[in-house]
Design a binder for these strands. Sequence first.
DNA 1: GCGATTCAGTGATACGGTTCAGTGAAACGC
DNA 2: GCGTTTCACTGAACCGTATCACTGAATCGC
Lengths: 329, 329
Amino acid sequence: MPRKRATIREVAQATGLSPAAVSYALRGLQVSEETMERVRAAAAELGYEADPIARALASGRSGMIGLLCGSLEDLWQQSLAVGISRGLREKDRYALILDAVGDPARERALAQQLRDQRVDGMIVQPLDPSAGFWSELCESLPVIAIGDSLPGTAGEVIFDNRRGVTLALEHLRDLGHRRISVLTPTRPSTPDRPADVHVTAEAERLGLDITVTTAPHGMTAATAAARDILLDRKPSAVFCFADSIAYGVYAAAQELGLSIPGDVSVMGYDDHPMSGLLTPGLTTVDWDIDGIVRAAVRLTAAAADGATRRRRVVQSPTLRPRASTAPRP
Amino acid sequence: MPRKRATIREVAQATGLSPAAVSYALRGLQVSEETMERVRAAAAELGYEADPIARALASGRSGMIGLLCGSLEDLWQQSLAVGISRGLREKDRYALILDAVGDPARERALAQQLRDQRVDGMIVQPLDPSAGFWSELCESLPVIAIGDSLPGTAGEVIFDNRRGVTLALEHLRDLGHRRISVLTPTRPSTPDRPADVHVTAEAERLGLDITVTTAPHGMTAATAAARDILLDRKPSAVFCFADSIAYGVYAAAQELGLSIPGDVSVMGYDDHPMSGLLTPGLTTVDWDIDGIVRAAVRLTAAAADGATRRRRVVQSPTLRPRASTAPRP
DNA sequence: GCGATTCAGTGATACGGTTCAGTGAAACGC
DNA sequence: GCGTTTCACTGAACCGTATCACTGAATCGC
């Protein structure tokens, strides 16, 4: 790391200008072309680079985008976070990634802390879309929601979960399954999460016998939950609301000596890159993660730059049938 | 998000003290018990919380720890990052995660930017341990290195790569393999990376016929590289320097109709949670990621809090034999 | 009872920028 | 040729906290 930071004052001194003029010049404001060049040259010479902290304090903007993840234990969300982080870097912005660990209370606290960091915008995968603080938050900075809709956001990338659930459950019904266990990462405290509502509604419509169980993300936790379900309820199919959870079911089935899809069919939801590599390949619902990343980055950058138009992208799911689902024996 | 931030001045006014006194009181310094209580109460009442940006500017510390990852395309590094991020949160610190995308030049720039953010410390997985700027960096803030050793760090969690490579190659040799392809994520520009040196040295010692190829992390890229190697060189075994890359080999083998381990044995390096779920299970070298996370968090927190003793943890690998390796046909 | 220490708290300044209101000179309209 | 704009730039205030040097009062030792 080179010479110890030059300040704006030193550049001003070197050019014979006032600090204010230098500040303007470096941002291409209010000064003549010629002065701008002179300042740029001096800044380069002195190795001057604006101090992001001081700038944030003075201007109230930091160049950072807050990324508030529901639970990074989910591999798919990890991929999403990494993708978004990279996308933002290409637009000269940092992502400040925070992990709510599946806890809505923590989600709220972290949102607050992100705001304190003067993030220019925030990307959120709301755990609890019905929480009251979102609208207040949206008023104080541009928020982009991913997944579920939120009131007052500057933009949204919404998953058509209704459609996704339909694809999954119809697929299982078409294979003859009636008795289906659903494993969802949703926390018990927010039982009315949109995606879950769709599940019970669709199940009713299709005449399926559904049991919904909560399982944390993360292999070991999901495996434990899956073990119980496979033993107790003996469903002919399991529908997991995240590929990560389906991986837990694979592990449990392996332990119990159950064959997939011979003894039980398994469906995922996300299409993580690993899902195609497993044996059997995991039948799942693909949300086009690259598309989501691109849309989120685009919307966020625009909103943080002051775009006012509220954009809403609705992501459509695709059924990705592989070998983990088969007709009911 | 509640009332709009109270400042320290308002708290001062409310308590009839000077701002300085409030500042001290809130941090439990220099003031009487009684005043401290009074200030705390007033602060709570006004909903005051210190502004991290202003604090960072004034004090030069931010409470954040920079986490500089080599390449987050690697699933194992993703797990590491998530784990460390969580561990730090439990110590009331944020992680500011940056991804060098496998590019040493970018690694350097990001290190600089992290420092500009006033991070209290930095955790680094150096892509290029021999780069000159590390020692300068270490002088200006406490750096914890993960993986390879670095001059001047405040602490290190070193992988005994020599031992890891030995475990892997001896395992393959014992199974009768001689003609082995090595796939490593190292960039061509730093060919003398310690881990790679061990490979060629060990291969020589064991009398193995080795070819080293560079493959980026990330399934699609690794798959492409693996395809070429499997077709052109027809090794009896492939040793991948990251489980993520081994996944690419699985995909390539699947495409080409090659059986693992029937036609080719595959070894990984890391032991990512998914490796045990694959069919066949991936034989790999386990570095105890949880131990690494714990050690890194502990060392970093200590160093950021001003601990001076330089701690060095050496991580020993364990061979995790599964089904992807078999005797040479 | 007197000088030397502690103690609790103050005022000023620093951190490194941004931004608002203002200024003198040049350009402009007519 | 005079009043009005525009242009390029300046001075000062400000963002919200930390910290240094200092002060007056209380405490201490003897």
